[in-house]
């Protein structure tokens, strides 16, 4: 395997790992706000790493440029969406879960 292929595999695996973390986080975390954390951060990185793997794999100028634009737009839109969800929750007076709620 060439170094580029190693990079593709590594990026894809890392992307899958963080995608998995996002999914597990959404199941395990207690409330909408904490779940939004998992959805906004891990999910973004997972998707971005996977698209990075795609950029390497395609190896054509145009598709690589397009992949990079996709990454940029994910970085802009994902946190915005998470913010919209969290704010919608706050507007409906949903109280954030705290440690005390655990007992």
């Amino acid at each position: 395997m060439t170094p580029v292929e190693w990079a593709i595999v590594a990026l894809a695996l890392l992307g899958a790992f963080f995608g998995g973390v996002a999914a597990i986080g959404i199941v395990r975390l207690p409330d909408i706000y904490t779940r939004a954390h998992a959805a906004s951060k891990s999910d973004t990185l997972g998707a971005v790493l996977t698209i990075g793997a795609v950029a390497f794999a395609l190896q054509s100028d145009l598709s690589t440029v397009k992949s990079i634009f996709l990454i940029v737009f994910m970085f802009i839109t994902n946190p915005t969406a998470a913010h919209a969800i969290a704010r919608a929750a706050a507007d409906q007076d949903i109280e954030p879960w705290t440690k005390e709620d655990d007992s």
């Binding site: 706000y33 954390h37 906004s40 973004t44 994902n78 998470a82 913010h83 969290a86 704010r87 507007d91």
Partner: peptide, 26 residues
């Protein structure tokens, strides 16, 4: 700034009024 906060360590911007950020931290 709001988006950067959302993307970085355990912090999520919930709402912004004026320049006051309401931030949920994990």
């Amino acid at each position: 700034l709001a988006n950067s906060i959302t993307l970085t360590p355990g912090t999520l911007t919930v709402s912004v009024t004026d320049r006051s950020f309401s931030i949920h931290s994990l």
